[in-house]
């Protein structure tokens, strides 16, 4: 699914802002997620200052997707990616280049540039992007084989802001794994993304800051499964008129011919 790696869970979880590492561990186990993101920059400090926490994440035995969260420039993001490869011994990198401090909106120009540099260096880039089709094209050209458009701004819990945009992205890239990353608030948002045919969802705050993160992790896992099953079952398209679910032949028809 992602750069030749097959996964059984379609839920990817972030590891920040949980009440404690113990709760984080329980939430992840309950969710069945096989990939977790770890932010390098935000955890602060140069070198291996975050080693205790990172070791804890590694001890969970999951696939780690390191993250350049909090980087505002190409240079910063590339540097952080290098550090991540060294620390976690993985070519995977979730690439975030932030363009606006308030909305944490990706700087798509910097993103494409950083994606090109990192892809050429052999990284397998998971770019956090908007749902813009042309930007997505450029990212694929730059070497990305996964795209991660936002649902809504990070941490906003608004769900899928632009369903039309996400749909056309799916239609445009039938063969590139697509992940809705960021902005999901409740499990129905995740189900909606999966019903659009997205390959997976990535979220953090909605679980980490829920009153009961472990229970919420389970709720999201169920929603992702339901949404995926619904997509595979070929759901109906909305119609303008009612369509009776029981046959009407042989019944009195009001307002007939």
């Amino acid at each position: 699914m992602f750069y030749g790696i097959e996964l059984s869970s379609r839920l990817l979880l972030g590891t920040a802002r949980y009440p404690s590492p113990a709760v984080l561990e329980r939430a992840i186990k309950t969710s069945g997620a096989e990939v977790v993101t770890v932010s390098l920059r935000r955890e602060g400090g140069a070198g291996r200052a975050g080693q205790s926490f990172w070791s804890f994440i590694q001890s969970l035995g999951l696939r780690v997707l390191p993250n350049t969260a909090g980087c505002h420039s190409v240079k910063e993001a590339v540097m952080t990616a290098h550090m991540a490869r060294e620390l976690f011994d993985t070519p995977w990198i979730k690439l975030e280049v932030i363009g606006d401090a308030d909305t944490l909106q990706p700087d798509v120009f910097g993103l494409v540039e950083a994606a090109r540099i990192l892809s050429e260096e052999g990284f397998e880039v998971f770019p956090y992007t908007t749902e813009d089709l042309v930007v997505a094209d450029r990212l694929v050209e730059a070497g990305c084989r996964v795209l991660m458009p936002w649902g809504a701004p990070i941490g906003s819990a608004r769900g899928l802001n632009n369903v039309y945009g996400l749909k056309s992205l799916r239609a445009h890239f039938p063969d590139i794994p697509l992940v809705v990353d960021a902005g999901l608030g409740v499990p129905s948002h995740a189900a909606a993304a999966m019903e659009l045919g997205y390959d997976a969802v990535l979220l953090n705050t909605a679980v980490a800051e829920a009153g009961d993160p472990v229970a919420m992790a389970r709720a999201f896992a169920l929603a992702v499964e339901a949404g995926r099953a619904a997509f595979l079952a070929q759901p109906l398209e909305p119609r303008d008129m009612a369509q009776p679910s029981t046959p009407v032949i042989g019944k009195a028809v009001l307002g007939g011919d």
């Binding site: 955890e43 602060g44 400090g45 200052a49 975050g50 080693q51």
Partner: peptide, 11 residues
């Protein structure tokens, strides 16, 4: 609250 063991001055 930062998951880091860096000592040293405030950033």
């Amino acid at each position: 609250m930062i998951e880091s063991e860096r000592r040293g001055p405030v950033s």
